[in-house]
């Protein structure tokens, strides 16, 4: 029974790996920030599944911190740096 949850975790980690492609390749800063949002949400799900499978209830608190971390990073990026839209955005639309 526990093995099925490991498959679920592996699936979510593969999702994180796919999101990493967008971090490396993403043309604008906004796309990379979006990938942080993906990591936050998927990380919360992953930690909740792990908390159930490994029977460590304190992992739910870590999940809570993860969900706040993504918000903190994105608010800091949009407020401190700002998002610039280079002309590469239109070029990306073709691919």
């Amino acid at each position: 029974m526990g093995n099925v949850y490991v498959i679920l975790e592996l699936f979510l980690v593969l999702n994180l790996l796919l999101g990493l492609v967008r971090v490396v390749r993403g043309p604008t800063t906004a796309d990379r920030i979006l990938a942080i949002q993906l990591f936050g949400t998927t990380g919360v799900a992953l930690l909740l599944v792990m908390a159930h499978r490994m029977e460590m209830p304190s992992l739910r608190n870590v999940a809570l911190v993860f969900s706040l971390l993504a918000t903190l990073a994105i608010v800091a990026f949009t407020r401190l740096v700002g998002v610039t839209v280079p002309p590469a955005t239109e070029a990306e639309g073709r691919s």
């Binding site: 920030i33 936050g40 969900s67 993504a70 918000t71 994105i74 608010v75 949009t78 407020r79």
Partner: peptide, 9 residues
């Protein structure tokens, strides 16, 4: 948090 992020971005 996701809603806030989406709106800000």
């Amino acid at each position: 948090g996701g809603t806030t992020n989406c709106y800000l971005l």
